[in-house]
Design a protein around this nucleic acid. Structure first.
Length: 882
RNA sequence: GGGUGGUUAGCUCAGUUGGUUAGAGCGCCUGCUCGACAAGCAGGAGGUCGCUGGUUCGACCCCAGUACCGCCCACCA
């Protein structure tokens, strides 16, 4: 069978994904009787496009899923998408804007319909992109957070929490985005450091010519001031406590009061208090019975409470207020004042603390159980240190604002009686008021925070609140794979809801992976223009190379700085895999039939490669068990390229090519080649699913596909050939030494050389005698002489391996200077090592304290090094005599 | 302000029970179309492991301090 000489990913990828999908190979059968292994996908936004974060996240999940599927587990990767309230509504609103319309022109119902239309036409692009990545999700089970079933889950959760008084409605200061015109939760507000200004303003004291000075970063809020606060211990201002000041521009009388909150050391010691527009002021207002004057409309303009500033945008108002104060000579100074300002996480607009009526989850009782679950080890974060972050947040958690003034999402299932205003909350939409029986009810206009529904994802996708077999089998799920940026948004909330409603943890492990950055270490973002498009990478280098790169970079606890060069590098690995297969297939011949490996037939290098394969299998297993994707990927890379291709393949050539060769030896080589190739494809499959499946198709003896053969390799005790491995390492050392001389001496590759081994070492003697043919093929050695009493010519090049000296008679070909330099370099290295060891051994404390075996090791080493040094000295002085 | 991660070869990164000649890929230099692969093969150069102390017989690894870079959280007007 002849393969093309380079691997072309494109067609292969398309072909196999289709076969896998059509064959339902991703489907996990709840009745298969196998042990469950389940991962729920972090649902991408329905508006989402695949970026590097997704690529990494889903590659890692796919590795775990494929690995476990091959191990014979009932491996379920539950896919789905998030309706992404604000993000999606924004997208559709923008489209409407292009038509010159707003959502209000359509009305709520028509708008919602429009969003659904958008979803079916252009939403979920990311799904196709995930397929491109090779994601082996169980697409038959795909869910959407606004599905009927998931909506039912949402309703049940809301109602239950409400009945337990864990959901309540109340007036609070919340974060308001004037552009999205909705409330946001605390974590949906991103704080950024801005260079703001601190305005110092005079407030006249009533019936006096005196005044106080307050400082503020948001002067327009003064329009809503209803008090001035001082610290009760502030000696400077104590006497003013209870006095009245005249609020400029509004001419309102407000009182000075004292409150512990005020920091004596900061600013002037006077704090203007605006209860409706600052959370701290709100708290102080509560304590001192101050009026809350709301100044803002929902769009961020000043409302009728702002006097003549009514109708101005908040920032225009700020400017105008300052100008007016200046005219009145009430502006003292303006200082530069860097401070952090909250921004909307969806549209980056500066948010306003805003006093309004919203729905909240009383979170503490839920958090307590969620904390316990991690403390008790029911859930393990990997890497462990993220637990601290989790605890930190959970211990300081505050009530969660869950109502959003949007149209796209789960409408809050609360119905207000038009007559008695009673709030009706029940699992089925009520037809009459449960209190007064009135039949005119109005549903709350708001929808729930998107994260309210995604927080139920691990069990809602499995069918909850129904008691489905899926739920029974796959919950708790095995592991959650996600980035640290959504630990609070999502992970914590899933844990809370899981503990509350399932009475069990939603997943046993949480693997937190790094953020992908560009090659300069910057976060990738559209606005920076530094995004590397995963799709383009897959087009250029193949999906397998791309996935492999991500796996190699996924070391724990570190950000990933991705460079295209690395991806390119692993494309060459794909090609290497391909060509080793090509070699193998070329040499097997048509009659080849795989047989069980017969130990007695195995030659030394066969044993060595099988032993190395064993080690690799073990390493891959332990690494994946610990989520050390980089270790797993590297070890299989190392094995395949450097053991299998660089050495074993080369070592089979004489056995396969030489017409005189022993038939049994050739046959054994074929069997081993085939065996190792097959196992390698299995080991590589989770990382590089396409190329391995393609190759498997060419080498398989049965009809099954690699993806579901359920034969993940296991190390075979019979193949732990440690002696042969040690011998092979010695053999390799000899080859290295000879190649080194050849390379440094610039001996042409076609120029054969004779070597003389001056040694009494039985092992080396036997290797040299037995493996002559390999010395010839790998190091272009013509003849090997073994002579313990050899007295070298002065024109011999030499090298030393332990107690053995290697000589290559070069006659006129030797370059004295080069050879001297080469040997001197080695001598310097040996001497510096000797100096180190001598230092240790002549240190009494070392002898006294170090373990005996360490001391013994050092002594042996010293003797060896001394011998080598002597030999080098001789060789070098010989050269000098020339 | 409170946490937290990093600093190892020109670049991007590995390196957990403290004893290694400190590794890999890319890049660089030299030589190779020899029956898998030039997306390759062989050889080579390149690092006082941020800095300063300490613990130890012994430190890239443990401890303390320090510098620089980064991230998360936080209501300082």
């Amino acid at each position: 069978m002849e393969l093309p000489s380079s691997y072309e990913p494109k067609e292969v990828e398309e072909k196999w994904y289709k076969i896998w999908e059509d064959g339902k190979y991703f489907h996990a059968d709840v009745n298969d009787g196998k042990d469950p292994y389940c991962i729920v996908i972090p649902p991408p936004n329905v508006t989402g496009m695949l970026h590097m974060g997704h690529a990494l996240n889903n590659t890692l999940q796919d590795i775990l899923i494929r690995w476990n599927r091959m191990k014979g587990k009932s491996a379920l990767w539950m896919p789905g998408m998030d309706h992404a309230g604000i993000a999606t509504q924004n997208v559709v609103e923008k489209l409407l804007a292009k038509e010159g319309k707003s959502k209000h022109d359509l009305g709520r119902e028509a708008f919602e319909k429009r969003v659904w239309e958008w979803k079916s036409e252009s939403g979920g692009m990311i799904k196709g992109q995930l397929k491109r990545l090779g994601a082996s999700c169980d697409w038959d089970r795909e869910r959407f957070t606004l599905d009927e079933g998931l909506s039912k889950a949402v309703q049940k959760v809301f109602v239950t929490l409400y009945k337990e008084n864990l959901i309540y409605r109340g007036h609070r200061i919340i974060n308001w985005c004037p552009r999205c015109q909705t409330a946001l939760s605390d974590i949906e507000t991103e704080y950024k450091d801005l260079n703001g200004k601190l305005y110092h303003i005079k407030y006249p004291i009533k019936d006096s010519n005196d005044f106080i000075i307050v400082a503020t970063t948001r002067p327009e809020t003064m329009l809503g001031d209803t008090g001035i606060a001082i610290n009760p211990e502030d000696a400077r201002h104590k006497h003013l406590n209870g006095k009245t000041v005249i609020l400029p521009l509004m001419n309102r009388e407000i009182k000075i009061f004292s409150d512990e909150y005020v920091d004596k050391e900061f600013g002037t010691g006077f704090v203007k208090v605006t209860p409706a527009h600052d959370p701290n002021d709100f708290e102080m207002g509560k304590r001192h019975n101050l009026e809350e004057i709301n100044l803002l409309n929902e769009d961020g303009t000043i409302n009728e409470n702002g006097g003549k500033y009514k109708g101005l945008d908040r920032f225009t108002a700020r400017k105008t207020v300052i100008e007016d104060l200046e005219k009145l000579e009430l502006l003292v100074k303006i200082e530069e004042h860097p401070h952090s300002v909250g921004h909307c996480y969806r549209c980056d607009t500066i948010i306003e603390p805003y006093y309004s009526k919203q729905w909240f989850v009383q979170i503490k009782p839920l958090a307590e159980e969620a904390i316990k679950a991690v403390e008790e080890g029911k859930i393990n974060f990997v890497p462990k240190n993220w637990e601290k972050t989790y605890f930190e947040w959970m211990n300081n958690i505050r009530d969660w604002c869950i109502s959003r003034q949007l149209w796209w999402g789960h409408r809050i299932p609360a119905f207000y009686c038009d007559k008695c205003e009673h709030i009706n909350v029940s699992e089925t939409d009520p037809v009459k008021c449960e209190k007064c029986g009135h039949t005119e009810l109005t549903q709350d206009q708001d929808v729930l925070d998107t994260w309210f529904s995604s927080g139920l994802w691990p069990f809602s996708t499995l069918g909850w609140p129904e008691e489905t077999p899926e739920l029974k089998k796959y919950y708790p799920t095995s592991v959650l794979v996600t980035g640290f940026d959504i630990i609070f948004f999502w992970v914590a909330r899933m844990i809370m809801s899981g503990m509350k409603f399932m009475n069990a943890e939603p997943f046993k492990d949480v693997y937190i992976h790094a953020l992908v950055r560009d090659e300069f270490g910057n976060k990738m973002s559209k606005s920076r223009g530094n995004v590397i498009d995963p799709i383009i990478m897959m087009d250029k280098y193949g999906t397998d190379a791309f996935r492999f790169t991500l796996a190699v970079f996924a070391a724990q606890g570190r950000d990933i700085i991705l460079s295209e060069k690395r991806i390119e590098g692993y494309r060459t690995f794909s090609n290497k895999i391909w060509n080793a297969t090509r070699y193998t297939l070329m040499n097997l011949g048509d009659e080849f039939k795989q047989q069980d490996l017969k130990i007695s037939n195995l030659e030394i290098f066969d044993r060595w490669i099988l032993c190395s394969l064993n080690r690799t299998i073990r390493k891959v297993n332990t690494s994946l068990e610990e989520y050390k994707f980089n270790d797993a990927a590297n070890s299989v890379y190392e094995f395949y390229w450097h053991d299998f291709c660089d050495w074993y393949l080369e070592l089979t050539k004489p056995r396969l090519y030489d017409a005189e060769a022993d038939n049994q030896s050739a046959e054994t080589a074929k069997q081993v080649l085939f065996h190792v190739l097959k196992k390698s494809m299995q080991l590589l499959h989770p990382f590089m699913p396409f190329i391995t499946e393609e190759i498997w198709d060419k080498i398989k003896d049965g009809r099954e596909t690699l993806i579901i053969t359920s034969t993940w390799p296991s190390a075979e005790k019979d193949f732990d050939f440690t002696n042969e491995s040690e011998e092979t390492e010695i053999f390799k050392e000899l080859i290295y030494k000879i190649r080194n001389i050849r390379g440094e001496m610039n001996l042409a590759p076609n120029k054969k050389a004779n070597i003389v081994l001056k040694t009494k070492n039985d092992k080396i003697i036997s290797i040299a005698k037995r493996e002559k043919v390999h010395f010839q093929s790998l190091a272009k050695v013509d003849d090997i002489t073994i002579n313990a009493d050899y007295s070298p010519e002065k024109t011999d090049a030499s090298a030393i391996l332990g107690d053995t000296e290697i000589f290559i008679p070069l006659k006129g070909l030797i370059d004295i200077e080069v050879e001297t330099a080469r040997l001197t370099k080695e001598l310097v290295r040996i001497e510096s090592e000797l100096a180190k060891i001598n230092g240790k051994l002549s240190n009494d404390n070392f002898i006294k304290n170090a373990p005996a075996d360490i001391i013994e090791k050092e002594k042996i080493k010293m003797n060896e090094l001394n011998e080598i040094k002597d030999k080098l000295d001789v060789s070098i002085s010989n050269l000098k005599k020339l």
